[in-house]
Write a protein that binds this DNA or RNA. Structure first.
Lengths: 207, 207, 207, 207
DNA sequence: AATGAATGAGCATTCATTCAT
DNA sequence: TATGAATGAATGCTCATTCAT
């Protein structure tokens, strides 16, 4: 008689695991071959399951892509919010955001590739799905910046929205270059480089 | 610089025109549906030619994508270099680059979409093809920055390469947001916003 | 008439019941969606059992279809024979057959649909399985008709086999039309209509 | 400039031919293996064309089935109407209908199989598509019968609709039996057998 | 050069059946 | 007996590319 006592736990674990396994496999495969060039069979093979099993956990190939995005974005944003809540100074918040951004993506190259390259390959995706996630992320940066303006640490003659985009764009470019680069270097330290410019500008004080 | 003067016969003009027509059609179609979701037949229909005719001008669907990139990048870079050659001050050069970047993409939405969204959807593309073009573009920015460092207008404690990426990333993000935004606004003025931050930083002088 | 009295043990009842339950579920599902469009999972769900359980009672999806046919045909023929045995006059026998035919199918719409529509969708089925059942049924009609010819109530210049087919075909068409009709009417009374023509012909006596 | 003059005719002919060829191939394949068991690849192979070519002429496998029905039904009904228009006496009309029915299907066994067996295998088909065609056919019989009632050659105490169904059902059963029979016999003569019963009934005059 | 009908490899998805629990 | 997660063969349909005209 199955499913009595902790066998349920076992089953649940298996299911959760398999979902996770498929997702990880998909990230690897998408990262390497691109979404459109990846076959469901590739994912299944990488996950060491039968093709059909994929469909017990995901409704379609497209849903896998979206799940990757949703899952990671949700996770990233909630982690970020938690960390930021404990920081008082707005400039320290911005600093932490930049660090987290590069740490997170820098620690999982495949995931980074999917985020930077694959997810953007779909206008549909960008339009329909990114909206929520990306907008929220940008908003977090913007809010932190506005806070800093109130606190007097950031210039008030700068549009907060534009400013958030500039920082995001700069960080994003670090990641993209890191991905495309044949060299293997640590992504995290670049946060400070970016912040140095972002905070202080490139012009000499005298200029 | 092609198509200057009367150097082309009628036939050659026709050929060149059709090549151009297909390229423009492809940009429109790719922009609207994405590279993988676009059918060669769609491009042919938009160009008002037969499907097979496409293959008289391009070897494959992929080649069309690459041609779009090559063509535009070459044009953009050569135009840019010419303009920059006439500018003395490094910070004015940087300024002009930022303006040109947003002017160019801001004046052709479809092209911008293909550049920002579609071209990136292909790791293969990014790796194999972007190299030349993007690298050259980034290098122009970097050179201008280094020039500025020598001239003493830019801080010397900043890595020029990173700096070029930051500027590029910031501009790039402006374009991406402009594309994804439902609002229709002018992209060009954002160059000054970006430069304000890039040049002066976001922190208050007193900070 | 099965399952009367207490003659069955609990277990046997359960088994018999489940077999029956699956069969009824299958009839409903096949009737609604057609054999090929019905999934074994649909049947299991309708029967409120697990997918795999179906295979404890039936070897395959196809076997379910055959079981429906066998079961119903056997039941119908044996019931029919019993009733006919008690009738003397051949024309009364024919009359009763027609009535039983429409009563039986008219009292179970789903079963009728499976018989009229689904079972015929399979050439293989028609060829391999219908033979026995249908042939026997047609033979019963034919025998009754020949009896009537001997008794002098039916014309002797008519081929008994053809005649049986005509009656069967006419009744069959009544059922098919009843199934396809959006109107809900009583099928049984049509037996008399058919018999009126079958017995008396459509021409006026004077003609 | 190609396809000027009669080359258009050539092309057209080819297209029409190929459409016809696919339809014939489909009838053969469907007749032999049943709709659901037939693969599009089977049809293509039988038609000696590539799989994809099927889709230049038909939108889907299902559309092929419908096309078979539509085409044949339209053809049959228009032919039938033409013939009947030239007949005065209602009973002769009924006679001709019966003959045409069996002649038509008797002359094309594969087509008959598809009509009798395959088309009916789909409740969806029967409901959605047969409506128009079958209803019209039954109506033709019914009209002829009513005409006969006015002319005084048919009994007035019989429901014309039921009567039409009886005749149709009887003929239909002849065809079905002919298809399922291992023996090869001529279907046409059975029209007279059916009519003998339909017109005169099976009872002896004295009864 | 231009056409567009034909090709056929390629792939996402379904579902009858199995089997470990 | 009962379960339902896992399997993987099977197939309808797409579309980049070719080629006879």
């Amino acid at each position: 008689m199955p499913r009595s006592g902790r066998s349920k736990t076992y089953t649940r674990n298996t299911i959760a695991d398999k979902y996770e396994i498929i997702l990880r496999a998909a990230i690897k495969v998408f990262a390497r071959k691109g979404y459109f060039n990846s076959k469901v069979a590739d994912i299944a093979k990488k996950a060491k399951i039968a093709d059909g099993t994929v469909y017990l956990y995901f409704k379609s190939k497209e849903e896998i892509l979206h799940s990757i995005f949703d899952r990671m974005m949700t996770e990233f944003i909630s982690e970020g919010k938690k960390e930021l809540a404990e920081i008082e100074e707005a400039d320290k918040k911005i600093e932490r955001i930049a660090q987290l951004h590069l740490e997170k993506l820098g620690s999982d190259r495949d995931l980074a590739v999917v985020f930077q390259v694959q997810l953007r390959g779909s206008t549909k995706f960008m339009r329909e799905f990114s909206a929520a996630g990306f907008a929220e992320y940008l908003d977090i940066i913007k809010k932190a910046f506005e806070e800093g303006q109130k606190q007097g640490v950031f210039r008030k003659d700068i549009n907060a929205t534009v400013c958030a985009k500039i920082l995001y764009g700069a960080l994003d470019e670090m990641v993209t270059n890191w991905i495309l680069s044949k060299k293997r270097y640590d992504l995290t330290p670049l946060a400070d480089e970016v912040l140095k410019v972002f905070f202080g500008g490139v012009k000499t004080k005298t200029a």
